[in-house]
Design a protein around this nucleic acid. Sequence first.
DNA 1: TATTGGATCGCC
DNA 2: GCGATCCAATAG
Length: 188
Amino acid sequence: MKIIPQIFYQTPTLHVTRQLLGAIIETTIDGQKTSGIIVETEAYLSENDPACHAGRGMTKRNAVMFNEGGAAYIYLIYGLHYCFNVVTETKGIGCAVLVRAIEPLQGIEIMRQRRKTSGLANLTNGPGKVCQALGINLRHNGAALYGRSPVTIYQGNKLDSAKIECDSRIGISQGKELPYRYFIKIEN
DNA sequence: TATTGGATCGCC
DNA sequence: GCGATCCAATAG
């Protein structure tokens, strides 16, 4: 498998959001390898996007959003869940892509243990669940995704563009009308 | 300085 | 529908 190079993350954010569908995210934590295919993403833009953390300047929490594209931006939401994002654009911009859901590939038993569930359907179908299953936490904030790192993203198989849908984002109160959520359509 | 709401999840 | 309970924006 080929690691996605850093230059990819510096292409326009909505392009990255769309192109990350089908890519493979893999973590190696305490010698345990887990991975999955990215099936749902959301863009958060620095311009004209009231839901973006970076929209009103840098804080301690969002500082890595202003790094060069290709870094992991991880934050704690509601005091108890982590969200995993990929930083995009060039240094100082402040855009990112949230990974909302993956389809489990490797290490499914490890993911079940981390998630404390025996199910498969509810293993990685939400941003907090993805982080818990992959073992991602604040230690990985700022990590490079294109090199030797506990979190790496690989190119996936090419997707049929007819299978990709786009609509409004989930769980936000501002910027609801923006069509920045991309996902792979479920087959009948 | 105190309060409120948030890119969520699991259980009631 | 509600509670868990950290971070940061607002004075709700």
